[in-house]
């Protein structure tokens, strides 16, 4: 009698915990599960598909585990079959070599296709031409350079909706990982190396971004906001920033790249056209000096 009660208490407890968790999680933002960019959206769908396929194997494992444990427990009063020497069966073993293999085969095909389709270097098809943004991770903030627009910003990314954004990334600091989970998956930024990433969103909004790779003491302070807005708003932001912000000279870049963290957004105009490439070259060429701003 007491045992039954105990079971009920546990059951009610588990249900209560699940309910509270559900109610709490409804109130907060879960970026990976609430994608707003087309890449993040595809990645999320893929996640659901793969999880679903795996459940085909995982659910039987759990059912079997508890069924067998319950039925063949030593304290079971009913007479169950006991065959201590039964230790192999080609058919049964064949099934669990084959079924998971087939499942993995299916998953492999999905993986192979998805890896190509969602390659971060793959341009996104759109009627609008892509906007190029150069990203430099510094100690410990993000510098975004809009080379064609002659604008640069720190810890604030402003992008137009419905336009593919083509990021080039490098680092003038240890390795970092650029990640705006609601828009797309992450990619490393590394000194002396250039990586790329395409994203696009059709929803206006403000999305959080982080560095996902430890890069020193101030790395927790590398959070930045990405604002996706209409093309018109974006253009007026560009024009305003170009007019009213200080020029990103070499010396101001050198000041900027000194370690600091939790940096408030800052804006610059007319960054050197060579700056991004020079930051890469600095690590690849001996006795390098920055080319003069023209």
């Amino acid at each position: 009698m007491i045992k039954v009660k105990k079971r009920w208490v546990i059951l009610v407890g588990v249900v209560a915990v699940l309910a509270i968790s559900y109610l709490y999680l409804r109130t907060v933002n879960i970026p990976v599960l609430e994608p707003k960019g087309i890449i993040a959206d595809k990645e999320f769908r893929l996640l659901l598909i793969v999880t679903g396929i795996m459940l085909i194997i995982v659910i039987p494992v759990f059912v079997l585990l508890f069924y067998i444990l319950y039925r063949y427990r030593d304290s079971n009063n009913k007479k169950t079959k006991y065959s201590p020497d039964w230790d192999h069966s080609r058919i049964i073993e064949g099934i669990w070599w084959t079924v998971p293999s087939l499942m993995i085969l299916v998953l492999s095909i999905i993986t192979w296709r998805a890896t190509y389709a969602l390659n971060p270097y793959r341009p996104i098809a759109s009627k609008n031409p892509p906007l190029v943004v150069q990203v430099v991770s510094l100690q410990w903030k993000w510098l975004f350079i809009y080379p064609k627009e002659n604008v640069a910003s720190v810890n604030r990314l402003v992008i137009p909706v419905n336009t593919p954004i083509h990021f080039y990334l490098t680092s003038d600091a240890p390795m970092n990982s650029f990640w705006v989970p609601q828009l797309s998956g992450q990619i490393y930024s590394m000194p002396g190396t250039r990586t790329q990433l395409y994203i696009m969103t059709n929803q206006k909004g403000v999305y959080n971004g982080w560095s996902a790779n430890i890069s020193g003491a101030g790395f927790a302070g590398m959070m930045f906001k990405t604002q996706a807005t209409s093309l018109a708003n974006y253009t007026s932001w560009i024009n305003k920033t170009r007019k009213s912000s200080p020029i990103l000279t070499l010396s101001s870049y050198n000041r900027l790249s000194k370690p600091s963290s939790y940096v408030k957004p800052r804006y610059y105009s007319y960054p050197s056209a060579n700056l991004f490439n020079d930051i890469i070259l600095k690590y690849r060429v001996p006795n390098f000096s920055y080319r003069k701003v023209v």
Partner: peptide
């Protein structure tokens, strides 16, 4: 068995590169 199976499922998820882009280092 319980924990390893759940963890293994998470592992297979992260074996798919595009999904890993979203979960890596998190």
């Amino acid at each position: 068995v319980v924990i390893f199976t759940i963890g293994g499922m998470a592992g297979v998820l992260m074996a798919v590169p595009p999904i890993d882009f979203q979960l890596h280092n998190s």
